[in-house]
Design a protein around this nucleic acid. Structure first.
Length: 351
DNA sequence: AACTTCCGCAACCGCAAGATG
DNA sequence: ACATCTTGCGGTTGCGGAAGT
């Protein structure tokens, strides 16, 4: 299992190949086959090591190599296979005729990986990223930071960035896998206050027209979403805008909600988690209600989900929190569930 | 137009495992 | 069984062109 000494030889050329060298290599292999790579350079009249010749041939000169941009189908294949195989580039290359492992690896590192990160997915696990800071690129994209930096003071920028962080906390909550026992991330008072007081990406009022309050919608994510087939259990973020429309209708048809929500900033999200529709409302500071439909019928009432999510806990982290370090918690209210009844027509109105 | 920064890609490096004597 | 050679693979580097300032 020793290492090949060929690359250690002194005086052998390195770096980019010239057309003349390529020609020599191709001519030799076409006539004799490559045989022993170690012996090849001398026989072919090349001042290269065998390894360099092998790489040049397998990654570039081989006649069956397909060059040019990756097609959408190839991209999809790479994503699907990578989700299963990981960084097994040669194994992935076996499924893409004419593509080399090196080419696929480069394509992954320069395009697909970044794309996944931008979409808020962990490029290794292909799942939504769970650590808040690793999701910042996505947040920044959402927040249209360029506009923010150009047109707002640093204080405003800080507040808005914090808002997006709060939103992400909330998104994390929605995106949790099934075995996670509905745990809500601990939010400090600042985060909660921001979440409670500022317009949300899911706000029913400003999701369409306010350019300063960007919305997570289908255009935020690249379409088509390549993970639909792999992560069917995740909420369908692509239709979040459509879902927001539904929330808006729910609000309009349930006076209790709008009347009790003075600032019109209640967060309402319809998600489909594990095949079950859920409506999540933030209707009071530090209070969320997760409603699920009692039966699989559009007309059945929406009730607090069972088991209910734990109370949202606010840690005493700022001056607005109790000074004794205690935590405050509230339980999801069933009040809204009692008054929230989705009508069949609501569903039919959705485009 | 000149300079800097960013990005994509070809090529290199080094490890691991199979093949061979 | 062991040492050496060969090949395959994945990670990383650095060059050159494109884009931005």
């Amino acid at each position: 299992m020793g290492r090949s000494p060929c690359c250690d030889e002194i005086g052998l050329k390195k770096g980019p190949w010239t057309p003349e060298e390529d020609q020599k290599l191709v001519k030799y292999i076409q006539k004799h086959g490559h045989g022993s790579w170690r012996a090849l350079p001398k026989l072919a009249g090349l001042n290269r090591c065998g390894k360099s010749c092998r790489l040049r041939w397998t990654n570039y000169l081989r006649p069956d190599i397909k060059r040019g941009k990756f097609t959408a189908e190839e991209e999809q294949t790479i994503l699907n296979l990578h989700a299963i195989l990981g960084n097994k580039w040669s194994a992935i290359a076996n499924h893409l005729p004419g593509r080399t492992d090196n080419e696929i690896k480069n394509f992954w590192n320069t395009h697909l990986k970044k794309k996944l990160i931008q979409m808020g997915f962990d490029p290794m696990t292909h799942r939504p990223r769970t650590d808040i800071f690793s999701s910042l690129p996505h947040l920044i994209a959402l927040a249209n930071l360029k506009e923010l930096v150009e047109n707002h003071s640093w204080e405003e920028q800080a507040v808005r960035l914090q808002t997006e962080v709060a939103k992400l906390h909330y998104l994390q909550y929605l995106l949790q896998p099934p075995n996670n026992n509905f745990s809500m991330p601990n939010l400090d008072m600042d985060t909660l206050n921001v979440l409670n007081s500022l317009p949300s990406a899911f706000s029913t009022k400003d999701h369409t027209h306010n350019p300063n309050n960007p919305v997570l919608n289908s255009s935020s994510l690249d379409s088509p979403n390549p993970f639909d087939s792999i992560h069917d259990h995740l909420p369908d973020l692509k239709s979040i805008e459509l879902q927001t429309n539904l929330i808006s209708k729910v609000n309009n048809n349930n006076e209790n909600i709008s009347n009790n929500n003075n600032n019109d900033d209640n967060i309402g999200v319809v998600t489909n988690i594990h095949g079950q529709d859920q409506v999540v409302y933030q209707h009071q500071p530090c209070e969320f209600t997760v409603l699920t439909q009692g039966e699989n019928s559009p007309t059945s009432p929406w009730l607090p989900s069972s088991p209910s999510p734990p109370p949202v806990t606010a840690t005493a982290a700022t001056s607005s929190a109790p000074l004794d370090g205690s935590t405050t918690s509230t339980t999801p209210s069933s009040f809204w569930a009692d008054h929230l009844l989705l009508e069949d027509s609501l569903f039919h109105d959705i485009p």
